[in-house]
Simulated assay, not measured.
Amino acid sequence: MTGAAQIAISGLDPRDRAAIEQLIQRHAWLIDHGKADRIGELFAEDAVLYGIGPDKIGRAAIAEWGRQRAALTERRSRHLQSNILIEPLSPETARGWVALTLYRHDGPGEGLAMPLLIAEYADHYRKAPDGAWLFAERRLSVLFGAA
Rank of each mutant, 00 (worst) to 15 (best):
E120C: 05
Q6C: 02
D13Q: 14
G11K: 09
I9H: 10
R17S: 05
S82E: 06
A113P: 06
L23W: 04
L89W: 08
K56Q: 15
I62K: 00
E21P: 02
S141E: 13
R138Y: 03
A147H: 11
Q81Y: 03
A99G: 09
A4I: 14
V98S: 01
I7L: 12
L102I: 04
G66W: 02
R138T: 01
Y50S: 07
V142E: 06
E21S: 03
I62D: 01
R69E: 11
S77T: 14
Y50C: 07
R17W: 04
W29F: 13
A147I: 11
V98L: 03
Y125M: 06
G107T: 04
E110A: 09
K35P: 00
R139K: 15
Q81A: 02
K35L: 04
A4D: 12
D13G: 12
A19L: 05
L140D: 15
N83G: 14
E120W: 03
A146P: 10
A94D: 02
N83L: 02
Y103Q: 07
G131N: 09
A5W: 09
F144S: 07
G111F: 12
Y103F: 13
A4N: 13
L30P: 01
G111V: 12
I84F: 02
R78F: 06
S77D: 10
S77R: 09
A36G: 06
H27G: 00
L49A: 12
G3P: 00
L80N: 06
A47I: 04
L85A: 14
E21F: 01
P54H: 08
R59P: 00
A132F: 02
W29Q: 11
L140I: 11
T73W: 03
A4Q: 14
A18Y: 05
L117W: 04
A18H: 09
R26E: 10
A113T: 04
A122R: 15
P88S: 12
L102S: 03
I20G: 04
L30C: 06
D16Y: 05
I20A: 05
L117N: 12
D106S: 08
A60M: 09
P108Y: 10
A5S: 10
L89V: 14
W133G: 03
F135P: 02
F144M: 10
Q6G: 07
A122P: 00
A19P: 05
A18G: 06
I84W: 01
R59L: 00
I39V: 15
M1H: 11
Y103A: 06
G96L: 08
R126I: 10
L30Q: 04
L100M: 14
R78E: 03
E21D: 10
A136M: 03
W65G: 08
G53V: 09
L100G: 00
R26C: 09
R138F: 02
L85K: 13
R104V: 04
I118G: 11
I52F: 08
Q81P: 00
W97V: 10
D13E: 15
E21Y: 01
I39P: 00
G131R: 11
A4S: 14
W133P: 02
Q68D: 08
L112Q: 15
R67P: 04
A128D: 12
A99F: 07
V98N: 03
L49S: 07
D130C: 13
